[in-house]
Design a protein around this nucleic acid. Structure first.
Lengths: 125, 125
DNA sequence: CTTCTTGTACGAGTTTTGTCAAACTGGTAC
DNA sequence: GTACCAGTTTGACAAAACTCGTACAAGAAG
């Protein structure tokens, strides 16, 4: 089964059904401290960066990232990112797919994503 | 005694003595994760923002910020900021004065200070 | 039905971080 | 000298965060 398209949106003629996003802070509720705290972890920074640079047109599962970590650890980090408002998650059957909240972040914290784009994962460290 | 001018710099004719900065990471050693971690604390975010927006031409002591916290707590936070490379500290006799590493930060993480400038201390959450 | 898969929930162990009091350091001023 | 003063250091404590194993839930596929 092909992954659900992320660009599917209501268009007035017909709706393409999309699962509701899991609970997340609204754009106006995003807190800079919380965003910084979420990005203080290298794994989470990698998740966000990978979503920004390598994501296809559809959302991605935990497995897509290829981390060699226990599932419970990944759940923890993805949840931290969603709680901080950096990613959005939708449940597609068994899979929980994530996407970056690019527009919200660019409106609320312009320049933030550029900082993450320029980050080099384990150089300069 | 007037506070030491921060714009005092060697000029080839005569030197104005300035204490050495306390140990700090070089510009090339700044780590984005560490910077984010340092800025995840509201008090530290306030320190940086105040240095950016209200600092005079000279460096500022802990007391200048007017925080109602024990001194050991402030020492802790200022050290965290210096370790992360956000501020520079110099010892003037008894006083330890801090300044923002504006140029280094702008070169290394362009846009970061703009994010902090736009932050509202205890609104939005 | 059973099995496989994707991921969550709970809980434990460990580490890190924030907070503060108490004692201390080293200048300055009298 | 003594007294003060800005700030550090140490050590303790609590709260939070990270990691992970185990058990569990629920959809997909045979």
């Amino acid at each position: 089964m092909p992954p659900p398209s992320n660009s599917a949106r209501p268009n007035g003629k017909g709706l393409i059904e999309l699962p509701d996003p899991l609970p997340e802070p609204a754009e106006g509720e995003l807190k800079l401290e919380a965003v910084f705290a979420a990005l203080a972890d290298p794994l989470r920074l990698t998740i966000v960066r990978k979503l920004m640079l390598e994501a296809e047109a559809y959302d991605h599962t935990c497995g897509w990232f290829g981390f060699d970590r226990p599932k419970s650890t990944l759940t923890h980090h993805f949840r931290a990112l969603r709680d901080a408002g950096l990613i959005q998650q939708r449940q597609y059957g068994l899979e929980r797919r994530s996407r970056l909240r690019t527009e919200d972040l660019n409106r609320r914290f312009p320049g933030l994503l550029d900082l993450i784009r320029a980050w080099k994962p384990s150089s300069n460290g």
